[in-house]
Structure formats: structure tokens, C-alpha cells
């Protein structure tokens, strides 16, 4: 998995704000139920990361330490997993992440025009966040929505297909 081009550490303010959105103790009851599914605590790492990321927006350095202590695994394992999977975030992202498929079935039906239009309209490069903090828009490898190509997924909400440049822009502008 290739790392993102920019790897500047998140600011202390951004981390503190994310940590303040949900205390680890408040998440514990949900996490305990996830841990109970597995014969080994560490196996709950992916589901626990999903819970923490959803609650806090991204996986902060403090989250890494808290999860490691909670699951009794090394912090390096937590960090290694966060950086391996494209959908885990160790940097602040927009309130919603928009994954726009770039892979073959979508490319054949105009995905590149959709990606270009979104960059132009929102004045950002793919992988960046809109000025208002609403969306992080990125190119994604195959989303498995090839029957709806070109397509995009707003994590963890809606998916949209049969896109063209105007339609993609309109959908993101008009979402409540």
C-alpha cells in the first residue's frame, strides 16, 4: 500500500479536538461487545478502530495509545494497521470522505472526467479537503459498484452511480 504523498503530522489542536469528541471510556461498552466476539483480544483491532475513528473523526496518537492498552497489543501494531488500510485515517479529514472510483470499469465510462470536475469545482487536489471542511475527496480503487459506473461512495453513507461531471458536482453541492 503506498503512503499518501504528504505525511505532515496533525496539529496538536486537531488531535485535542478529535479526542474531545468522545472519551475512550464512553466508547468502552461498545468496544467490550466487539472484543467478546473473538477468542483473542487483539483480533478486535479493526472493529475497534472503526468505532474510534467514527467517534473521533480520525485515529489520533492518543487513540493509538488507548487502543493498544485496551487490546493489550503493541502501539506499533495499531499504527501499522492504521497506515496499511486506506480507509483508516491518521490525519484530520473532512466531515465526510468521498471515495470516487478510478478503476477500469469506471474509467471506461468517464471516471476521469468526474475526478477532474470535482477537483476543478472544489478547488482542491484529490486527497484534500474542501475549504469549508465538509468533504475530503479522493480517488479510490475499485468500489465494487461497476454496474453503477462511474460511481462514488460517501463513507459510511450513500453511494451514487451513473455519474457524469455535472451530476457528481450537483450531488455533493446539494447534499444536506
Amino acid at each position: 500500500m503506498s503512503a499518501p504523498a504528504t505525511r505532515t503530522a496533525p496539529s496538536a489542536e486537531a488531535c485535542a479536538a478529535a479526542d474531545a469528541r468522545a472519551s475512550f471510556d464512553a466508547l468502552r461498552p461498545r468496544l467490550d461487545a466487539l472484543v467478546a466476539r473473538y477468542p483473542a483480544r487483539g483480533a478486535a483491532l479493526l472493529p475497534v478502530l472503526w468505532e474510534v475513528q467514527t467517534a473521533r473523526g480520525f485515529v489520533t496518537p492518543q487513540s493509538v495509545r488507548e487502543i493498544a492498552a485496551y487490546l493489550e497489543i503493541p502501539a506499533a501494531q495499531v499504527e501499522g494497521v492504521v497506515t496499511f488500510y486506506t480507509m483508516f485515517r491518521d490525519r484530520p479529514v473532512g466531515r465526510e470522505v468521498v471515495m470516487v472510483c478510478k478503476t477500469l470499469s469506471c474509467r471506461l465510462r468517464g471516471a476521469q472526467d468526474v475526478l477532474d470536475a470535482l477537483e476543478r469545482k472544489f478547488g482542491i487536489h484529490l486527497g484534500e479537503t474542501t475549504k469549508d471542511g465538509r468533504y475530503t475527496i479522493e480517488a479510490a480503487e475499485c468500489l465494487g459498484l461497476c454496474d453503477m459506473a462511474p460511481c462514488m461512495l460517501v463513507v459510511d453513507g450513500e453511494r451514487f452511480g451513473d455519474l457524469d461531471p455535472e451530476k457528481a458536482v450537483r450531488i455533493l453541492e446539494e447534499r444536506a
Binding site: R37, L46, P47, Y85, M87
Partner: peptide, 12 residues
């Protein structure tokens, strides 16, 4: 017999 969903996070 227990069945659980384990959700991945983006890795082919």
C-alpha cells in the same frame, strides 16, 4: 453457532 461480520478497511 455464532456468525459475525468483520468489516475490512480498504485493502484488496
Amino acid at each position: 453457532c455464532d456468525v459475525w461480520v468483520h468489516k475490512g478497511a480498504g485493502a484488496y
